[in-house]
Structures are given as C-alpha cells and as structure tokens.
Amino acid sequence: MSFLDWATGLHGYLFVGTILATLGIIAVVYRRNSIGVLLGIELLLNAASINFISFSKFRTAAIDGQIFALFIIIIAAAEAAVALAIILRLYRLRETIDAGEANLMRN
C-alpha cells in the first residue's frame, strides 16, 4: 500500500482527525484567551466530524455518520453563540477574557 493510498484512505482522514483533536485539546488547556479556548473546542468538534464522515464513507454504506456531522455543525454553532455571549458578558464585567483569571470561586 502506497503512501498515497494510505493518505487518501480511511487512515489518512483519521490521522487528520487525531491531529485536530490533539491540537484542540492543547488549545483548550493552554490558551489564555477565552476565544482561543473556544476555538480549541471547535477543533475537537471538527475532529469528531471528520471521523464521523470518514467512517461513514469507508466503513458503512449508511449515511448516518454524515447526518451526525451535520448535527454537530448546528449544535456547535448554537454552542458558540452562547459561549460568545458568556465571554462577552465576562468581559463587560471584568474587562479581560483571560480564562485563568476567572477564579473567584475556588477551594
């Protein structure tokens, strides 16, 4: 199996998904900026979407994976809307969107 076959087959897509997921996790964990964190989450969702679509294409004949991906996009949009609203309000109240500064409640 050539590299090209590998890369355009299921494994290639999965590889991309995995990398996206990893990057997403790293972003969630290390970005100070809340928007960055939000983007990390979106990356994770996209990784899952890629998985769903590729599995749907390569493993089963059904399209339910692709439908799932559509739902993910919709829900991610809703989530992002709410998230941005929350971040916005936080910024209004505190004038920073640094995720680490939101530590009023602890211990």
């Binding site: 769903f52 590729s54 599995f55 799932f68």
Partner: peptide, 10 residues
C-alpha cells in the same frame, strides 16, 4: 464524548 461517539461509530 463526541470524539468517543465517532470512534464507536467507526
């Protein structure tokens, strides 16, 4: 969880 779902699906 979603990522997990995708793996299960796969």
């Amino acid at each position: 969880m979603l990522y997990g779902f995708s793996l299960i699906y796969g």
